[in-house]
């Protein structure tokens, strides 16, 4: 059975069901208790699970994630919310140098079943320190898994899988997705990592998009359809592990690839996808250069007009796809 709920509700439901099922699961974060979190994701959870499992933390991400790593090492399954994904910069040492590596440094005797949720992305007028898309930072750290669900159902299923995973998982939630509604199964059904999904079937070009950009890509595809261009939209859902086979199969079908993400272009995950495609079986099927649509290489401006210019728009995707299909 499923019903339509918001992305935020889906995330909340996943956490609540995981907590119901497993006493070891608990939440930490800034203002997640009575306040319900900066984006309301944990609304009401403290009433149900109490302050020992819904733990408000000081404004010290380094400390919070460090505590989470310790708790995980001792057998708990903490889920930590960064109030804004940007703040995870403060927690890089426990996350990158501890959580990601302990399993490997101790010969597999220990694991760190930690989830760090990152409300990410711009478009909110929140400027440079509250708008970033940092997924590439974590993709580059072996030992971390990275999920970027684009729909409420994926958010629930992948978060359940992340909490059940014995590895540390960075879970990226775009802030503008929280109010997006969609059908979500009521049951606690985890979704496998490393399995992308074709959001829209197409013939002429593959658009691989992540998170919020999946929706922009679908809108662009709709518009391009009117112009006679058939766009396939592929959502990898998790970046680590990545469904390289799914992307490759799609590109071998269409012969063209446009990668769309909200993170800045330089060093972004789009380059990784492009390399996976051009370095693999799909190479010989490419009919045009691979294009990336990504944020300009600049901090997100506060000015709404400038912010809109920096972040990829539907128009940007339409233009890039049109240029790619015309062989440019």
């Amino acid at each position: 059975m499923s019903r339509e709920i918001t992305y935020a509700e889906a995330v909340r439901e996943a956490m609540a069901q995981a907590m119901d099922a497993d006493d070891r699961v608990f939440l930490m974060g800034e203002d997640i208790g009575v306040y319900g979190g900066a984006f309301g994701v944990t609304n009401g959870m403290i009433d149900r699970f109490g302050p020992s499992r819904i733990r408000d933390t000081p404004i010290s991400e380094n400390g919070t994630v460090g505590v989470g790593v310790g708790a995980a090492l001792l057998g708990m399954r903490p889920v930590i919310e960064m109030q804004f994904s940007d703040f995870v910069a403060n927690a890089m040492d426990p996350l990158v140098n501890q959580a990601a590596k302990i399993h490997f440094m101790f010969g597999g005797q220990l694991c760190v079943p930690l989830v760090v949720r990152l409300p990410a992305g711009g478009g909110t007028g929140a400027a440079a320190q509250h708008s970033q898309s940092q997924e590439a930072w974590f993709v580059h750290v072996p030992g971390l898994k990275v999920a970027m669900p684009a729909t409420p159902a994926d958010a629930k299923g992948l978060l359940l899988a992340a909490i059940a995973d014995d590895n540390p998982v960075v879970f990226v939630e775009h802030k503008l997705l929280y109010r997006v509604r969609g059908d979500v199964p009521e049951a606690a059904e985890p979704l496998p990592f490393g399995q992308g999904v074709v959001r829209r079937q197409g013939r002429d070009v593959t658009v691989v998009a992540t998170s919020l950009m999946v929706h922009k890509a679908l809108e662009a595809a709709e518009r391009l359809q009117e112009q006679g261009t058939s766009v396939e939209v592929f959502d990898p859902r998790t970046l680590v592990p990545l469904d390289a086979a799914g992307i490759t199969a799609s590109v071998m079908k269409t012969g063209r690839l446009v990668v769309v993400h909200e993170a800045v272009e330089r060093g972004g995950f789009g380059a990784e996808i492009a390399a996976v495609v051009s370095g693999g079986e799909a190479f010989s099927y490419l009919q045009a250069p691979i294009r990336r649509v990504a944020a300009r290489n600049t901090p997100i401006p506060y000015s709404p007009g400038l912010e809109a210019a920096v972040i990829p728009s539907v128009d940007d995707i339409v233009a890039a796809v049109a240029a790619t299909v015309s062989g440019g």
Partner: peptide, 14 residues
């Protein structure tokens, strides 16, 4: 295709 960690092979043949 280079498989990241444990990429799924469930997708259709090209």
């Amino acid at each position: 295709p280079p498989a990241a960690t444990a990429a799924s092979a469930a997708t259709a043949a090209p």
